[in-house]
Design a protein around this nucleic acid. Structure first.
Length: 273
DNA sequence: ACATTGACCTGGGAGC
DNA sequence: TGCTCCCAGGTCAATG
């Protein structure tokens, strides 16, 4: 479910109900996520105010006066807002209960997500220290990407999904941006021309921005916390479209596996170099 | 330094 | 109906 646009959509939906509010308590029903949820949250959080919510890569940071709760949705995490208490269901692992009565409930069947506590300054947190730039920021541009991938003998798809190079580009949008740029996912970084890199950067930004405008992509079960589905799925060009006609040339889209992730490619439009 | 693989989990769908 | 196998939107850690 969650790629960057889904995280952004989630954050925008929950912010009005959460930001500026004082925390009542946190209920951790199951603490075994990607890393153990620190139990110290139960004593630290009550009476702290969530001053702002920030996104870094696909992590959300709930900033308080003294530190931040860092939340990652993993592969299957969903946050939703409850206006009144209801019995938790399967995989409802965490409730963050605000003093205004709103409950932020975290559901994550596969438990690849994370809830961590980081004291300020957040930038020094080990997970954030090695991260590359945000894909939608000015720092991520053609000059930068050319310098990062120009000598790399690795498929460009793997490279743009590497967090040290650029954060937040997941499998769906990597496939889409490569198709739009007519670049094969297996083409090595070192073989790309500057023009191709310019196109790729442009399309990564474009596809992410468009998806955010649509409220993310609903493939299986993504609903934003306010209950709205994402509408970007209807704009997908190649992702999940094996054997369907390429929207450019009608050649059947093929599915292949690159570095253990599914790629969807038009063999005509995206020849391997 | 770089490339590749394994690991962490559950649920849904396909195929028999 | 039920079993087994394969697949899934992430990414860090370990290995060569």
């Amino acid at each position: 479910m969650p790629e960057l646009p889904e995280v952004e959509t989630t954050m925008r939906a929950i912010s009005p109900s959460i930001v500026g509010q004082k925390i009542d308590s946190i209920v951790i029903r199951r603490d075994k996520l990607r890393w153990d949820i620190p139990r110290e949250l139960e004593t630290i959080l009550p009476n702290l105010v969530i001053e702002k919510i920030e996104r870094r890569a696909k992590y959300m940071i709930f900033h308080t006066q003294v530190g931040g709760v860092v939340v990652h949705l993993g592969m299957s995490g969903v946050l939703r807002l409850l206006t009144e208490y209801s019995e938790p269901e399967k995989h409802d692992h965490v409730d963050l209960i605000m003093q205004n009565g709103i409950i932020l409930r975290y559901n994550d069947p596969r438990r690849f997500g994370a809830w961590l506590w980081v004291e300020h300054p957040i930038e020094e947190f080990r997970l954030f220290e090695k991260m590359g730039p945000e894909p939608l920021g000015d720092e991520f541009n053609a000059d930068y990407l050319a310098e990062k991938v120009g000598k790399r003998n690795r498929g460009i798809k793997a490279l743009i999904m590497t967090q040290e190079i650029v954060v937040g580009v997941g499998n769906i949008y990597a496939n889409e941006a490569l198709f739009m740029s007519k670049i094969n996912p297996q083409t090595h970084g070192s073989k790309l021309t500057k023009q191709e890199i310019e196109l790729l950067v442009k399309h990564i930004k474009q596809v992410l921005e468009r998806s955010i405008k649509q409220g993310g992509t609903t493939l299986k079960d993504f609903f934003s916390p306010d209950g709205k589905p994402g509408y970007f799925a209807q704009e997908l060009l190649v992702y999940g479209k094996e054997n369907e006609a390429c929207p450019e040339c009608e050649t059947p889209i093929i599915r292949q596996v690159d570095f253990q992730r599914a790629s969807f490619v038009c063999p005509e439009c995206q020849p391997l170099k």
